[in-house]
């Protein structure tokens, strides 16, 4: 039996492998392929995938697009936006989410457009009554990322920033107000 400091003797490549180690290789190898298959397959049959079209757009242009969208949107009495169509535009900036709060209909699919006016931000969303149902997406200056989302449950969804964007980062907050259609 050799130790890890010894130069292995003879034809060590052809030494037989212990039976239990062979079994473990089989189990671990199968598991590796299985979790790859599941991750890949879920993009086809699953409902939660961080996938959407990305467009290159300068931060100033994106800010202008969000501005036009806001002009076209209706407002509730509290000043919350009601999107004019199926597209919802959100711009991260220090230290707030431009375009939020917004009022959405439960069960309706919206295209959520994400972009930044300055530095990187983290788009982090959760419903108020269940904090463990949360998701996080990275937001860049220079990119417009369009992620479709359908909020099934009505309620108040809070958006905070989870990428360090400068001192003041912890004050970033916005809301989705999802109402029964």
């Amino acid at each position: 039996m050799s130790g890890p400091f010894d130069e292995p003797e003879g034809n060590w490549w052809d030494e037989p492998v212990n039976r239990r180690e062979s079994m473990w290789l089989g189990i671990a190898g199968f598991w590796s392929l299985a979790i790859f298959g599941w991750m890949s397959g879920f993009t086809r049959f699953g409902d939660q995938n961080p996938i959407g079209q990305t467009y290159d757009v300068e931060p100033e242009e994106y800010q202008a697009v969000v501005g036009e969208y806001k002009d076209a949107a209706d407002e509730t009495e509290e000043g919350h936006l009601i999107p004019p169509g199926d597209s919802v535009y959100i711009g991260g900036r220090r230290f707030g989410w431009d375009g939020l709060p917004v009022v959405l209909e439960a069960g309706r699919e919206y295209d959520i457009h994400l972009g930044s006016y300055d530095v990187q931000h983290g788009f982090s969303v959760r419903p108020e009554e269940n904090l463990s149902k949360q998701i996080n997406l990275q937001v860049f200056p220079g990119s417009e990322w369009v992620i479709p989302m359908t909020f099934d449950e009505p309620g108040r969804y809070h958006v905070i920033c989870n990428e360090f964007c400068g001192r003041g980062h912890n004050t970033m907050h916005g809301e989705f107000l999802v109402e029964e259609a």
């Binding site: 979790i35 939660q48 995938n49 961080p50 959407g52 149902k133 992620i147 989302m149 359908t150 099934d152």
Partner: peptide, 16 residues
Amino acid sequence: YVLNWFLLTQLWSIGA
């Protein structure tokens, strides 16, 4: 693994 995926599928529908 199963637990994490179960929690994920409880979320609202996301992505294309």
